[in-house]
Design a protein around this nucleic acid. Sequence first.
DNA 1: TTTTGGCACTCTCAAGTTGAGATTGCTAAA
DNA 2: TTTAGCAATCTCAACTTGAGAGTGCCAAAA
Lengths: 343, 343
Amino acid sequence: MSFENLTDREKRVLQNLIVHYVQTADPVGSRVIANKYRMGLSPATIRNTMQDLEELGLIAQPHTSAGRVPTDTGYRVFVDTLLKAEPLTEADRGKIKVLMSGSKGGIDAILGQASKVLGEITSQLGISIAPRFDEGVLTRLDLIPISEGKILVIIAVKSGLARSILMEFESGIPIDELRQMELVLNERLSGLTLGHIRKTISERLADTGLSPKLLKLFVNAESEIWQDRNQSILHATGTDNLIKQPEFADRDKLSSLMKALEEKKELIEFINSKSIGEGIVITIGSENDLDQMQSCSVVASKYRAGNVSGTIGIIGPTRMPYSRLISIVEYTAKSLTKALSGS
Amino acid sequence: MSFENLTDREKRVLQNLIVHYVQTADPVGSRVIANKYRMGLSPATIRNTMQDLEELGLIAQPHTSAGRVPTDTGYRVFVDTLLKAEPLTEADRGKIKVLMSGSKGGIDAILGQASKVLGEITSQLGISIAPRFDEGVLTRLDLIPISEGKILVIIAVKSGLARSILMEFESGIPIDELRQMELVLNERLSGLTLGHIRKTISERLADTGLSPKLLKLFVNAESEIWQDRNQSILHATGTDNLIKQPEFADRDKLSSLMKALEEKKELIEFINSKSIGEGIVITIGSENDLDQMQSCSVVASKYRAGNVSGTIGIIGPTRMPYSRLISIVEYTAKSLTKALSGS
DNA sequence: TTTTGGCACTCTCAAGTTGAGATTGCTAAA
DNA sequence: TTTAGCAATCTCAACTTGAGAGTGCCAAAA
């Protein structure tokens, strides 16, 4: 399983092969590696090494008389052990700075902008996922009567997130009662995380003198108010980049990938499940749980907004310039954290 | 310019040709029309008629030995004068009902659901555009302190819309002052439309005893708070349907269309500019202002949410089953209006 | 023992060829 | 006014062909 015992030569061949393949998208032959990358060896020798690498499952031949292409495992080894961190170019850094600073008007707009920046700079699909509210600390809860039987619930969370939910009842509710409710809710709940609230809501509101009819809506732990499924927002920008990639020449493949992208819920769950710890997380091809993404890689990183955190990153074909992308995603995540936290 | 003086036969040929072409996507020959549609005429006669229609610019030949395909003008005549309203099937009506009723949790979620419904049922790209806030009546405005130098402004509008904007200052603001501000703003502004507020804000807040530093943010008519550019949200669902259409076999074309779809601002402006009056609006191929949409048609309709209104519809290749789509979009718009207004 | 040159072998891909099939426009007859 | 007949045109899929790329392996060289 471990590929630590690769010879130095094998490593260099793998590295050069991947670098070249990422650029050209064409299977790489022994001659190219021997000549273009000046390894001081003849193509024949390279060929022998390539045979070894193929036996190890790191590279593969599309057909007999073609060069080799990296396998998912090959990319994995490359990413884990061979990757040289490529520093961000001054140009890229500048672009990110400019584009990220120009975005105002609420976290949602900023996240949209972030995904756009990522998509544009990397020529991949840029994505951003809004923070999960579960860890968010409630700062204020508003109840706004809309019409007979409808109220708008607004939940504001520390660090500038807010979301609104439209609730319905059978019958109208006196405005006084609503005010009262609002007061009590704010009093008893603000300062707590939404996750915490969900678990303890029934106890916390047990002894209020409020109308049980109204109360029922909030006390229910299953109430939509305290859930954040349906609510984590996913932005994805740069599908046109994806379409241009040769790996998506197959329309069916492209179509099913796009469908998966629109099925946001699953995608969000998947990406969140991978991006647990700190730092960059890379998922390559068959490592992806989603069927439609078996030929894609994901480079993702967390960002913070106060004490909640979300994920941004890029999606593209497994053949992607990992080292460059890592720097970009990393830096963008940092910029985003900065833009969202109290600067 | 007017095609009212088409002979009866010409009309029938055009009609049958379009119906057949929409189904098959293949150029339609004289034989098919003569036989399959039992016009009681020989192919040769049909051919003569087709020549006339071609001279009128209603149909065209991709190449010498192919059948004919409708031109944009041909579709236009079809839509304007030949279309028979196709009643909604019970199945479609049922689907729309079920899918639309299952959506809760704020207007944004409902609109997302609407675009999804449209996309799925029509096998085209379903779109929905959130109402413009300009006409919306302010019900409540909240100022929520987030951190030193940041406040969250929440604007709730009659009928359940809300949006939040993150504002920044150089220096902190005492919480009392903020409360005061909130009070005054609500007192003086609620009940007015946002458009109205924007125009009259400076007079309305002239004589308050509030801190000018804070006031400045709100009084400025150009302030982000009163604008709704950047804010009209566009949902688009069903790109996978589009990809499958033969007219988007060309990757470049597809790619540039997708880019246009992501450039939401322009698209929103364009669609809003078309959909002015009541009822269904159809824009065919070259009638579209946007370059990337020259081979697309749009079927759109307004919906209302209280006293603001937005647009939903579908986008697809010009070769689309107009009559069916019209019924579906129409009905979905009605359902949406119902779901958003006080039921 | 490792590296290399040489060479037969395999496979792809683009270009060219061919023939069947579809459809037209036109003309002359019904 | 309509139709049958027919030559002409063009596409498309199937097939053929040859150049080119790359391999694997063997025997010679280092």
